[in-house]
Design a protein around this nucleic acid. Sequence first.
DNA 1: TAGTGGTCTAGACCACCCT
DNA 2: GGGTGGTCTAGACCACTAA
Lengths: 246, 246
Amino acid sequence: MTADSANEFTKRSFLTLEQAIRNDLAEGRLAVDRRLPSERELAERYRTTRITLREALSHLEMDGLIYRENRRGWFVSDRRLVYNPLWRTDFQRMTREQNRQASTELIEAVSAVAPDDICALLEQPSGTEFWRIRRRRRVDDRLVVFVEHHLSKAVFADILEQDLTGSLTNLYREKYALEYGDVSFEINPVALTGMSATELHCSDGTFGLQIVRVNRDQTGRILDCDVEYWRHDAVSIRIDTRDSIP
Amino acid sequence: MTADSANEFTKRSFLTLEQAIRNDLAEGRLAVDRRLPSERELAERYRTTRITLREALSHLEMDGLIYRENRRGWFVSDRRLVYNPLWRTDFQRMTREQNRQASTELIEAVSAVAPDDICALLEQPSGTEFWRIRRRRRVDDRLVVFVEHHLSKAVFADILEQDLTGSLTNLYREKYALEYGDVSFEINPVALTGMSATELHCSDGTFGLQIVRVNRDQTGRILDCDVEYWRHDAVSIRIDTRDSIP
DNA sequence: TAGTGGTCTAGACCACCCT
DNA sequence: GGGTGGTCTAGACCACTAA
């Protein structure tokens, strides 16, 4: 890791700093094992202050080149996972098809009263209890999405006895003989706060993508509702009407 | 506009400042005609520095509560426009159905060699010339999206003679007897830079949503490709497989 | 425990917008 | 031309991570 580009870096304009870091990243001069040096070291190397440096890093973060883990430092982003919310292939399989490796961690699985907006989406009166399953997923070891599922307690009476770190899609099919039917979803750019930020190890206010899905079975009955919070640089949504919707 | 809440504001913790601003916004104490006071005035009111204040404002910006126009100041965001990229209803109609008012400005309409990635999407060799139409759109007078269209020169030989501030969908149908068929699109969270930032009057690096669409006619022939850059707080994507795809 | 990122202070200059 | 936002300096303390 040489400091060549730092020596060339004389103008202090903001974009020049950003560009210098961008170049060093592209040519692999900056990150060791995907991890950037500390902010103080970077500030010194580019002869600027931490505040200015952090402003530049934030720009690169918004552009999806790097990301940070809360109080752990800055890392180089990997390529985005391509995700089609209309497909019900399970997560493991989706990542495997893209030559990535996925893992899922169960955070909690409890019975709980859903918030009013979730009850409305599930077409149940306010105050209804559902199974609430919270999980988070990694792709190639990086935390990329926090998911909160709300499931009908009547339909999935004994779901807490199942292995909830695997694919719910497969569980539905194999244990409950349910096939997915229609899907509706909503995508919103949001700030990750509270539990989504905590679980994804990102600082409060980091930018993310919220995806709210309502899944139905083959008869049109509402099965469940997922609220997903993605790290914004980890995902690319793609939909093609020529694809069959399995 | 009283300063009550500012007087209550004693702790200087970051979240407290953010929360104080959030409360004042919610109760209408902060913005006059959707515009916030200057940063210096806000810093004084909340007894903090501009740097800290801007950090808090950036959080609220990421959360979609406020936005800024480059060098013009901070404004309160309006509700999001609901957008279904599978629908080909024109923009005017879509906004009208949501009781909003839309307008479109033509930036340029020229013949130009498309970048390699666009040529690939349009399934043409690199270096192919297309009509390049750049426009920007407002909803209720706010700039919300910058769009770049690439159209086949063969199919739309005389399109530059048409009114390009209206709906291209309607032009296709009325002047060229073309109906839309399949659509594919891709949604990426990105930083708005260069022309998209300039045209949307936002500062370089502002967070946005990029939507790349490839539209086909009823026979499957590729018609055009749109690249849209949305201000992130202005849009909510919604898709429902129960909707017919007109 | 040392070092890190997260937050904060108290200033400053410049380019640009608005009047 | 005055005021704005955009950028920058040179420090500081604290909570937390990593060793």
